[in-house]
């Protein structure tokens, strides 16, 4: 599922052909999820069948076809970034890829994505904690331990999201701080002149 969404997200930036998509996907997700080019083309074929991508022109000299998003494809990318990850569908990987791609793409409000996910995970933690209170009251130790496992996983996800948010905000602050420095240089040159 995430390969499909990941390729669509990459194509929202610019049209690409299969091998480009593969290397961009691997580069931007830190190589945590290696893809083979066959997987990429199979996925592109399905996306084309579903009306989410289309060929952006004829094949080039080497026979490569560049794909771009359709309107429906753009809608799908927007939906992916604004929908929280279903816990049942291996949240770690999809969330990791969503955030890794989110920080590299323009127009994605990464802090809002992090907050939505954090709220969803804390709400889940609240449910788990209620169940744990019942388990404690009923002396159901095995169930309590199973619940604790989920509680630790959810807690770890929130801590990781906190960390990502701090890191992203620090990076944004550093990026905006470089602008005044350039201005200062400019002013200094002017005053010297």
């Amino acid at each position: 599922m995430s390969i499909r969404q990941g390729l669509l997200a990459l194509l929202s930036e610019q049209p690409m052909y299969g091998a480009q998509l593969r290397s961009e996907f691997e580069r931007r997700t830190g190589g945590t999820w290696p893809l083979n080019v066959g997987q990429v083309y199979t996925t592109l074929g399905r996306l084309q069948r579903d009306g989410l991508v289309e060929a952006a022109g004829d094949a080039d000299d080497e026979g490569r076809i560049t794909y771009g998003l359709t309107e429906a494809g753009r809608g799908e990318v927007a939906t992916w970034f604004t929908t929280t990850v279903d816990r049942e569908s291996d949240p770690r990987d999809e969330l990791t890829i969503k955030l890794a791609l989110g920080v590299t793409l323009p127009g994605v409000d990464i802090v809002a994505i992090i907050q939505a996910q954090r709220a969803a995970t804390v709400a889940h933690l609240q449910d788990l904690t209620r169940l744990k209170r019942d388990a404690l009251a009923g002396g159901d130790l095995p169930w309590e331990l199973v619940l604790e496992r989920s509680i630790f996983t959810a807690e770890a996800q929130v801590r990781w999201l906190d960390h990502v948010e701090s890191r992203v905000r620090r990076a944004a602050a550093a990026a905006s701080a470089t602008v005044p420095v350039a201005d200062v240089d400019h002013e200094m040159q002017e005053s010297r002149a």
């Binding site: 907050q115 709220a119 969803a120 804390v122 709400a123 889940h124 609240q126 449910d127 209620r130």
Partner: peptide, 19 residues
């Protein structure tokens, strides 16, 4: 649970009794 960011409440969650 109320979430604060930069002095503003950005989210509130309830334990969903349904779940």
């Amino acid at each position: 649970v109320v979430f604060l960011r930069d002095g503003v409440v950005v989210d509130t969650t309830d334990a969903s009794s349904d779940t």
